[in-house]
Simulated assay, not measured.
Amino acid sequence: MALVGPPAAGKSTAMRAFFAAQPGLAHFAVRVFFGRQAAAGTPLGLQAKAFAEQARWLPDEFVGQGLATFLEEELPAASGVVLEGFPRNADQAQLLDRVLAGFGLELGRFVLLDVPDDVATARVGQRQVCQRCDTFVENGVLVPDASCPRCGGAVVLRRDDAPEVFRERLWHHRESVRELLAHYAPRDLVSRVDGTGSPEAVAEQVREAMVFHVS
């Protein structure tokens, strides 16, 4: 299952509640996966760090290599796989099809988290991110000198969350969603979930959208 939504839609927050209620699933998020690879010093991680140092987006084919590595490691013990925030556009959707086909798999459900722009904008103004481990910290109010509850690192407003940048990200998301719906709707894979509720309520809607069974 792929879960996609606008920036600051609460995907990661809802996923924490979802996985707490659905153990046994493997979870792939591009930023998290490559962050762990970088921390472990793997070849993928070192290459991802090099892209970051050059202020470059990770190329799609490189992300595909990461996803294939993830599936090789996680599939044997997983009852299912949830892709958070991936694919982002039609090119990545086609890449995902190819990677899954290599494992004899196909996507079971494309879940779109619907959140109005004004709600996403309000949410992004209430979060900071840890400079060390990249964990989002929901403070409600940006507190000077706050620290990450996971690792104790300094937390700051992410550059991508600056108002003018965030408005552009929302616009790109809307354009990308049109491509993704055109790719998945003919295959009857699309489910829409109201992302304005509590993390637990969103997690329950996501669970109901699943088409594979969790033992």
Rank of each mutant, 00 (worst) to 15 (best):
A2I: 02
A8F: 11
K11G: 06
S12V: 08
A17I: 14
F18D: 04
F19L: 15
Q22H: 15
Q22C: 14
A26M: 10
A26F: 06
R31A: 13
F34C: 04
F34H: 02
G35A: 01
A38Y: 06
A40W: 07
T42K: 06
T42S: 14
G45R: 12
L46D: 12
A50G: 13
A55E: 08
R56W: 00
F62A: 06
F62S: 07
G66Y: 04
L67V: 12
T69Y: 06
E73H: 08
E73M: 02
A78T: 14
V82D: 01
A90T: 03
A93K: 06
Q94I: 01
D97G: 02
L100Q: 04
A101H: 00
A101Q: 01
G102Q: 01
E106T: 12
L107N: 02
G108Q: 04
F110P: 15
P116E: 11
A120D: 03
T121H: 06
R123G: 00
V124Y: 08
G125H: 14
G125Q: 14
Q126V: 09
C130E: 05
C130S: 09
Q131W: 03
R132W: 11
C133W: 14
D134N: 15
D134M: 10
V137P: 04
V137C: 08
S147P: 03
S147K: 15
R150N: 13
R150I: 14
C151L: 13
G153I: 09
G153M: 06
R159D: 13
E164K: 01
V165I: 15
F166G: 06
H173P: 00
H173Q: 05
V177A: 02
L180Q: 12
Y184C: 10
Y184V: 03
L189D: 09
L189V: 10
L189F: 08
V190H: 04
V190P: 05
V190M: 03
V193D: 00
G197Q: 09
S198E: 13
P199H: 14
V206I: 15
V206N: 02
S215I: 05
